[in-house]
Simulated assay, not measured.
Amino acid sequence: MAVTKKQLVTAISVVYLLCPTVLAAYALRSAHNYSLPIPDVICALAIALPPLAGIALEVVLAINEKLAARGQLQTSRIFQIVTAFFLIYESVLATLAGSHISPPGSLDCALRETWQKLYHGKEGQCVRRIQDAFQCCGLASMKDMAWPFPDANHAAEACMVRYEERSTACMDPWRDEERKVAIMLLIVPVMVFLWKVAVVLAPSSQSAWLPSQIRLPTDSASAESSATPRRPRPAIAYRDVEEAVEEDSLHDEVERLNKDSQLASHIEANRSKSSGYLDEAARWREPL
Rank of each mutant, 00 (worst) to 15 (best):
K122H: 15
Q7G: 00
A182W: 02
A48S: 11
A62L: 13
D132N: 14
V41Q: 11
L250Q: 00
Q80R: 15
L67E: 09
L73C: 12
Q116G: 01
I42A: 06
V192G: 00
L93Q: 04
R175D: 00
S76W: 15
W195G: 00
E58M: 03
D176N: 10
P50L: 06
P51S: 09
T21C: 13
V92L: 07
E242P: 00
C170F: 09
E123Q: 15
A155V: 06
T10F: 14
P217V: 07
K259I: 08
A221S: 05
Q131Y: 05
L111N: 09
I88G: 10
A11Y: 10
I12Q: 03
P150K: 12
V197K: 01
E123L: 04
E253Q: 10
A235N: 15
I47L: 10
L111V: 03
S261G: 01
D252N: 08
S265K: 14
A198R: 08
C19Y: 10
I267L: 11
D176C: 05
K259D: 05
Y119T: 06
H154I: 08
S222R: 11
L61F: 14
S222K: 10
C19V: 15
K6Q: 11
Y277T: 06
S167H: 14
A282G: 03
E113F: 10
H154G: 03
A2H: 03
A152I: 05
H154M: 06
V192P: 00
L107T: 03
F86G: 02
A84T: 10
V59P: 01
S13Y: 07
D279N: 06
A223M: 10
P39C: 02
A237L: 11
E177V: 04
L210K: 15
R29F: 15
S99M: 12
S220W: 04
E164D: 07
E242H: 04
A94E: 00
H251R: 13
A223L: 13
L28R: 02
S261L: 07
K180V: 06
A221G: 06
S106C: 02
